[in-house]
Design a protein around this nucleic acid. Structure first.
Length: 228
DNA sequence: CTCTCGATGCGCT
DNA sequence: GCGCATCGAGAGA
């Protein structure tokens, strides 16, 4: 994958009005599958953010699957509430929430309408607009490749907060999902492991290997255990 | 390197 | 009122 393809090395790439390469958006039918399939599918897809005219781009390298109301680790476990209503809607919308009172996390709603399945975006590799991401992350941002190595770091780097919850990632002009062949991932490069921070869900739902990551990426939020 | 702990807002039981 | 799909600073080894 080359940063140059996104104009990251172009000093004009972060000026308002700069036109990014036209990558095709994901289509809604591509997100109709269950949460586990969708979590794997989203690896290698490119998230684009229009941050007040500054174009940010990042490759998704880590995800987690959340099944729906029956999944004791999912926010949908309490049923449809004002906060989680978007999860019960059609696939392709963003579900953004505040956790621990200070951090935001981004999910992609997937599966048929009413299922309330979703995929948590846990880490991305910066592709364009790295200077802006660094500004947003502050002095503890670390190396470029680790600017968005975590679900809350991803939201902080991309300027994603609750006001964006509910937007349609397949049509919105502020945040959307695209295909880029240069960023594609093959099945044998996908690692899996237990979801992070969901022990409260009990031994069954808490131990499912529903966290997925791109082998070899320096942007993973934490290592995956075991060989391959 | 690993571990512990505090920050902090709010949705839901 | 409880408890969180996290992060970063600081201490110790």
């Amino acid at each position: 994958m080359s940063l140059a393809a996104y104009g990251a090395d172009d000093p004009f790439s972060e000026q308002p009005g700069h036109l990014p390469p036209q990558l095709p958006r994901l289509r809604r039918e591509e997100l109709l599958a269950d949460a586990v399939s969708s979590a794997r599918f989203l690896l290698g897809k490119v998230l684009i953010r229009d941050d007040g005219g500054v174009r940010l781009a990042a490759r998704i390298v880590e995800t987690e699957a959340y099944a729906g109301p029956e999944d004791r680790a999912s926010h949908a476990r309490a049923g449809r509430t004002p906060r989680t209503a978007v999860m019960f809607g059609p696939p392709g919308h963003a579900y953004v929430y505040l956790v621990y009172g200070l951090h935001h996390c981004l999910n992609v709603v997937c599966g048929p309408e009413g299922e309330a399945a979703a995929v948590l975006i846990r880490a991305v590799e910066p592709l364009a607009g790295v200077a802006r991401m660094r500004e947003r992350r502050g002095p503890s941002g670390g190396p470029d490749l680790r600017l968005a190595a975590g679900p809350a770091r991803t939201c902080q780097a991309l300027g994603i907060e609750r006001e964006l919850s509910g937007l349609d990632l397949l049509s919105d002009e502020r945040l959307w999902l695209t295909h880029d062949p240069a960023c594609a991932v093959t099945a044998e490069d996908i690692l899996s492991g237990p979801r992070i921070g969901v022990d409260y869900a009990g031994p069954d739902w808490g131990s499912r290997l529903w966290r997925f990551g791109l082998a070899g990426s320096a942007a993973l939020s934490k290592p995956f255990e075991g060989p391959r």
